[in-house]
């Protein structure tokens, strides 16, 4: 069953940036890409459990602030050392100014 949750307003996130969103004891990272699309992943890096919302977004890549582990935040794919475990991604849609993510 679809479980769409309002995560933030579109304007809460700068272009090519990321913010943190906590819900139901879990934590997520919500991204706005340079081409103005929105995306969501698990909040913590798969390497050492550091929050990715403190990381740097460059194009489609989120870089962990701790050890520079890189993921494609659109696909969740780990992109080179030290990370080798992919990041879980979540469907996102925009309704007006609201960004919603679908949780399982």
């Amino acid at each position: 069953m679809a479980n769409w949750i309002a995560a933030c307003a579109a304007d809460d996130i700068d272009e090519e940036d990321v913010i943190r969103f906590d819900h139901g004891g879990r934590t997520f990272a919500i991204y706005r890409s340079p081409d103005d699309t929105f995306h969501a992943t698990d909040g913590l890096c798969t390497h050492e459990k550091v929050h990715l919302a403190d990381g740097l977004v460059m194009d489609d890549i989120i870089e962990c602030p701790k050890h520079n582990g890189r993921f494609n935040y659109k696909t969740g794919e780990a992109r080179g050392a030290p990370v080798c475990v992919n990041l879980k991604i979540y469907p996102v849609r925009r309704e007006g100014d609201t960004i919603l993510i679908e949780l399982d």
Binding site: V50, D54, G55, L56, E63, C64, P65, K66, N68
Partner: peptide, 11 residues
């Protein structure tokens, strides 16, 4: 604390 300085040090 934590990842607070990582982004700006990377930049």
């Amino acid at each position: 604390p934590g990842g607070a300085v990582g982004r700006d040090v990377r930049i």
